[in-house]
């Protein structure tokens, strides 16, 4: 698989897997307005995933469309960050995950909007507008929960401690990143770290939350080495396509 296909899959799978997780909140959110917001954001993410996966299939040139890629790959062939596949947990966990990713996503899409690859640049520019709203939404909730009640603060800090260690992966460069950055189609993964940290630290301070200590652990979902949770998520997501091979829906 070419570096470009791998790289595009990473963006598609990030959006797909987070969109899938977020949709689990529908009907179960803490307040009706958040059912609507979760649906809306999930819908944006699934829409982005469709664009990225379609592009990946086209570059690959083996006739795989968005559904072939979403429903007929094994867990080790998915390229999303590990953070995004973890179960939802409570609302604080969901909000923290969203914010950590959304802040990165905005920066990443900014960088990609200047990609030498016009297809990549176009999808990034479109997704960037949506990501801005996602970040505003998760950032607002992070502040509310962090600076809300004693209970909400404790839950949010705990969620942050649990998830912080998965963010190292955002900035962990590999050969795919290097090749894409080199060609001008992508960006160097590590280059976003300082800006991300500064922005996240500012919002965490407003939320009266502490930035957790850096961990030695680095997850490698984007290279296809996932947690135990992804295969279960995929088993559910892919069930109809796998049970009825060749059927059209």
């Amino acid at each position: 698989m070419s570096a470009k296909v791998e790289y595009v899959l990473r963006f598609g799978d990030n959006s797909l897997i987070l969109g899938q997780r977020l949709a689990e909140w529908l009907g179960h959110a803490p307040v009706l307005e958040e059912d609507i917001a979760s649906a809306n954001i999930s819908l944006d993410l699934i829409g982005q995933a469709r664009l990225w996966l379609t592009l990946a299939g086209r570059i690959e040139g083996k006739g795989r469309d968005e559904d072939r890629l979403a429903y007929h790959r094994e867990q080790q062939d998915f390229r999303n960050f590990t953070l995004l596949e973890l179960p939802n947990g409570d609302y604080a966990y969901t909000v923290v995950r969203r914010f950590l990713f959304d802040a990165w996503h905005c920066l990443a899409l900014d960088a990609l909007s200047g990609s030498h690859d016009t297809d990549i640049a176009a999808i990034a520019a479109k997704s960037r507008k949506e990501a801005e709203y996602h970040r505003l939404h998760s950032g607002d909730w992070l502040v509310r929960l962090g600076d809300g009640t004693g209970e909400s603060h404790a839950r949010t800090q705990a969620a942050l401690e649990l998830q912080w260690r998965y963010t190292a992966e955002f900035f962990d460069s590999d050969a795919v990143d290097a090749e894409m950055a080199e060609s001008g189609a992508g960006f160097a993964a590590a280059s976003l770290r300082d800006e991300w940290l500064e922005e996240v630290t500012t919002v965490l301070a407003e939320a009266t939350l502490k930035v957790p200590a850096a961990a030695k652990f680095v997850s490698h979902g984007k290279r296809g080495r996932h947690s135990e949770h992804l295969s279960r998520l995929l088993a559910e997501m892919q069930v109809l396509q796998r049970t009825h091979p060749g059927a059209k829906w």
Partner: peptide, 20 residues
């Protein structure tokens, strides 16, 4: 979570969002 295509998934999410 089990919608059989991404298009059907998107439509169903939008529909449930409408209900909310």
């Amino acid at each position: 979570s089990r919608a059989p295509s991404l298009k059907r998934k998107a439509i169903l999410i939008a529909k449930v969002q409408d209900e909310a």
